[in-house]
């Protein structure tokens, strides 16, 4: 059992160190996010798994597993939300050697689409249109046009 706990601790620590190195060394926000979210989640999860295996007491393993599940559920959501808002806020400066930005193309054709839809929806009640203009900057809708 102590071998298992030691392996979890060492591998988890290694993953977490890789995540931190990636956070420092990688060139743009999305790559840093990739390192921090995936390796960081796995590393922290392994460290908590070591707790579940080693610490005696009622319900410790349950709490540790619940924490791991919570981490696995929320880390991708948090990363997605921050990446999405940063992209639409224009804070992201992609790496020089990035070849393909499919989201920019989709937004480019999506702006015409949403402008068209706004022209179609002139008769809508003002509340929904005000909400749309407040929450959604142009092209924020997730629906990619079928011809994109």
């Amino acid at each position: 059992m102590s071998i298992l706990v030691s392996a979890c601790l060492l591998i988890g620590g290694g993953f977490v160190l890789v995540a931190a190195i990636g956070l420092v060394r990688l060139p743009d926000l999305l790559m840093r996010m990739h390192a921090a979210t995936k390796a960081g989640t796995l590393g922290a999860g392994l460290l908590l798994a070591a707790v579940a295996f080693s610490v005696p007491g009622d319900g410790v393993a349950v709490k540790a597993v619940a924490t791991i599940v919570f981490l696995l559920l929320t880390a991708p959501i948090a990363s997605h939300v921050i990446a999405r808002s940063a992209y639409y806020a224009g804070d992201i400066k992609l790496w020089d050697k990035t070849h393909l930005d499919e989201l920019a193309e989709a937004i480019g054709s999506g702006e015409q689409d949403s402008a068209h839809r706004a022209a179609m929806n002139q008769g809508n009640p003002p509340r929904s249109s005000a909400r749309a203009s407040r929450v959604d900057p142009p092209g924020t809708n997730d629906a990619v046009p079928a011809d994109a």
């Binding site: 620590g13 931190a20 956070l23 926000l29 840093r32 460290l47 707790v51 924490t67 990363s79 804070d91």
Partner: peptide, 27 residues
């Protein structure tokens, strides 16, 4: 970190690392 999202992502990782720290100390 040049922009605000960079700092947020880094603070997120710091929180995960603190969770791992607490776990290791619990062991």
């Amino acid at each position: 970190g040049p922009s605000l999202p960079d700092r947020v992502v880094a603070l997120d990782l710091v929180a995960y690392l603190a969770m791992g720290f607490l776990g290791a100390y619990a062991v």
